[in-house]
Amino acid sequence: MDEPLVRWDWIARNWDNGGPTSVKVLLENHIVMAFVPVIAGLLIAIPLGLACARYRWLYQPTVGIMNVVYSLPSLALFSILLSVTGLTQTTVIIPLTLFSLAVLIPAVVDGMQSVPDHVRQSAVAMGFQPMRRLTRVELPIAVPVVLAGLRVAAVSSISLVSVGALIGQGGLGYLFIDGWQRQFYTPIVVGIVLVVALALVADLVIIVAQRLLTPWSRRRA
């Protein structure tokens, strides 16, 4: 192989070349398409998870549906949505939101279940109203478990966005297409490194957030 794995001058020229395929622009798109689903997923998963924890009969069917959703290949979902939302970022964001939900709903339910019964009972005994008990006692205790789920959802979401490149909306995934078509390693390597780095940063941010949110739990996640 005479072609080097990385040609640094390519990176320098293409980091910000003004066009829609500058690495910088792709990175920004990637971040949007990866994080919107995770945040939307979290916002939907909290009420749904709470409902499942409260009404046990909801849990099995919900988890069953989420298991099925999680089993669907992302490329197939993108392709099916193409007919509805076209070649837009939404086509990538909707399936990734579903995948996030599939991880986060069980995490919220497990989190609520991680609240020890004696803690819940003593909160009731001290006269906490249900809403106050939820926000002051139960949710804080559930945070570590929910955030563990959030880490999985975020890292998966970041890596899955790149498949969207096959339907023209993949953020950094474009670099893989570009590299493949030109038989050129540099964009591929840059893409992989950036995606993994993004995943590591997101993971780290959530770990730090957990430290700050739950200073009482020094257990390593």
Partner: peptide, 19 residues
């Protein structure tokens, strides 16, 4: 476990096949 989750499938495929 972490690598499998973080590595982009498509990137891995094109890189390995090209190599």
């Amino acid at each position: 476990a972490n690598a499998a989750r973080a590595l982009p499938t498509l990137g891995l495929l094109v890189l390995v096949v090209l190599l």
